[in-house]
């Protein structure tokens, strides 16, 4: 209805296609021959040990960086400028601007596109209310808890109005209780505002809870080891989901792979 809504996908072609991507930093190979394919509204989780190149891969998909070899295409855009137009990126640190309040931070992409500040605030106010920030609209970042700040950061990512969300360890810096809370919250938020999502994490449970596909990467050189399909019943609590036998099965398989590498 508003600027928040990304334009509907026009083709049935894969939303994101990564083919034979290689990335080197000097003599070290960060990513070796990565290949991925996502259809519209897929939710992919990438797990791997630190230093496996998962954040680097995300940076390449977003268009912030270019691969040394291989092809990356996001909704038909294969140049980095084109990909930047399709992807919103949520970093691990919230990177909120301390001189802007909650709505001001969330609305910044609208202002960047020329929407006047006042109008931009009104446009994100509705989303803020729906995503647990009601009553906090004019607080400043230093007045918010870590969990709240990540919500604002996600809201900013969402209100960029892009079809693809790239979440780079969004809850990595939070304590485990807040993290569990936000995982459920993000699951709900993505059900309500479906997007093609790639989540990078080193937390296997988080990967399973938030993705319908999980890719496991190995370290040095970063390589895609295995892909798992995840289909968990909807509307269950986090605790019940974790207790499901198929959940435990997948978790053990993935942990086994991670330990072996």
């Amino acid at each position: 209805m508003t600027a928040m809504q990304p334009s509907p996908p026009v083709t049935t072609a894969p939303a994101i296609q990564v083919q034979g991507v290689i990335k080197r930093f000097g003599a070290t190979t960060a990513i070796q021959d990565a290949t991925l394919e996502l259809t519209i509204h897929d939710r992919l989780s990438i797990v791997g040990p630190s230093g496996c190149g998962k954040s680097t891969l995300l940076g390449i998909i977003s268009g912030l960086d270019d691969p040394d070899a291989g092809v990356v295409s996001v909704l038909g855009e294969s140049t980095s400028q084109g990909r930047l137009k399709k992807c919103a990126w949520m970093p691990q640190r919230d990177l909120l601007l301390p001189w802007r309040d909650v709505l001001g931070n969330a609305a910044i992409s609208l202002e960047n596109r020329g929407v006047r500040a006042k109008v931009a605030r009104q446009q994100v106010a509705d989303l803020a209310g729906r995503f647990g920030l009601a009553g906090f609209e004019d607080r400043y970042p230093y007045q918010l808890s870590g969990g709240m700040r990540q919500r604002v950061s996600f809201l900013r990512t969402l209100s960029a109005g892009k079809e693809v969300l790239l979440l780079d360890e969004p809850f990595g810096a939070l304590d485990s209780i807040t993290r569990a809370d936000l995982q459920l919250w993000l699951r709900g938020a993505l059900d309500e505002e479906p997007r093609t999502t790639i989540l990078v994490t080193h937390d296997v449970e988080e990967a399973l809870l938030l993705g319908n596909k999980v890719v496991v990467m190995s370290a040095r050189p970063g390589r895609i080891q295995a892909t798992f399909e995840v289909s968990l019943p909807e509307g269950m609590s986090r605790r019940d989901l974790i207790r499901l036998p198929e959940f435990g099965d997948l978790r053990d398989q993935i942990l086994g792979l991670l330990e072996a590498s």
């Binding site: 940076g59 977003s62 268009g63 912030l64 930047l84 137009k85 992807c87 919103a88 990126w89 970093p91 640190r93 990177l95 601007l97 001189w99 910044i108 992409s109 202002e111 960047n112 596109r113 900013r156 960029a160």
Partner: peptide, 26 residues
Amino acid sequence: DPQYLRLMRTLDGSRWSTLRRVQIPA
């Protein structure tokens, strides 16, 4: 912090809007 500049690039921030909304206030 260069991470802010990268973030602004993903949020449709032109060089001018990044200067005005991030670098000058910072």
